[in-house]
Amino acid sequence: MTLWLGIPLGLLVLAMILVLSSSIDFRFRCYKHGKNDLLELDVITLFGLIKLHYELPRLVFKGLERGVLGKFKETGTATTGVDTVKEEQFDKERFEHWRENIQLAAKSTRGLKEWFRDTLSHVKISKFDWSTDFSLGDAADTAIASGAVWGLKWSIVGFISQWVKLKHNPRVFVKPVFQDEHCFSMELVCKGKLSVSYAIYALFQLLLRVLRETGGIGQWRKLLKQMRREHRGQSLE
């Protein structure tokens, strides 16, 4: 009897060790060349057993009021097995709604900003490549602008390095194109990971911070229910 109990218990402990020793690996790619746009996000965890791929192949600017329209695609082993393709509208009203949700989450969680910063500090970036080619149509203007673009990009990299760990020096390129026509192309590739063990610990810490805030659990339940309803509504569309 002890043997029959010991075998499943041992397998359970082994499974827990494997899960805790794995990591959440991600790869983000942003590409733009002329009218061709592409946003990609790949997430892999549990040694490749769970894979997710998100893709936004094109963004269309519809004006200040209507915002940006994009076709969103989701695939991977963690989905229902059927590729999900839907259009997403990113307008002023939607961004305002996101801002309200973030404010509600912050009010319902004690020290949410500190928790978020601590969690990001354990994200390890193994690759950060960012290249930009452009022309303003005038050689002199392009040369002057290239210096400003260099400064802006390194300022952004410096800001990012305050939040996450950069394991290797980022590779940043700016290539001015001296031609009479306007052109712009850009590619950003970022790879990194977060250990599953720390992700579980961070979720536990988040739960404690919610419990310490008066009414935190109730507010989070309300927020999550609202987000699920919105997700169902967008899926039906």
Rank of each mutant, 00 (worst) to 15 (best):
T2W: 09
W4L: 15
G6E: 13
L9P: 00
L11D: 01
L11R: 06
L12Q: 11
V13I: 15
A15N: 11
M16T: 13
I17L: 14
R27D: 05
R27S: 10
C30N: 06
K32D: 02
K35S: 12
N36C: 04
L39A: 10
L41R: 05
D42S: 04
T45F: 06
L46F: 13
G48N: 01
K51L: 00
L59T: 05
V60D: 08
V60L: 00
K62N: 06
R66C: 01
R66S: 07
G67K: 04
F72H: 09
T79V: 04
G81D: 00
V85A: 02
K86T: 09
E88V: 15
E88K: 13
F90I: 13
D91Y: 04
R94A: 03
F95K: 05
E96W: 03
H97L: 11
R99E: 13
R99K: 12
L104Q: 14
L104E: 15
L104A: 14
S108C: 13
R110M: 09
G111V: 02
D118N: 13
H122K: 15
I125Q: 09
F128L: 15
D129Q: 09
T132W: 07
S135F: 06
L136S: 10
D138L: 08
I144G: 04
A148S: 12
A148P: 02
V149R: 09
W150D: 13
L152Q: 04
V157L: 10
I160N: 03
S161D: 09
S161A: 14
V164A: 02
L166H: 00
H168P: 02
H168G: 00
V174F: 01
K175R: 08
E181D: 12
L188G: 02
L188S: 02
G192K: 09
L194P: 03
S195D: 10
Y198Q: 11
Y198V: 11
F204D: 08
L206D: 06
L208D: 05
R209G: 05
V210S: 06
G215P: 12
G218A: 08
R221L: 12
Q226F: 07
H231Y: 11
G233H: 11
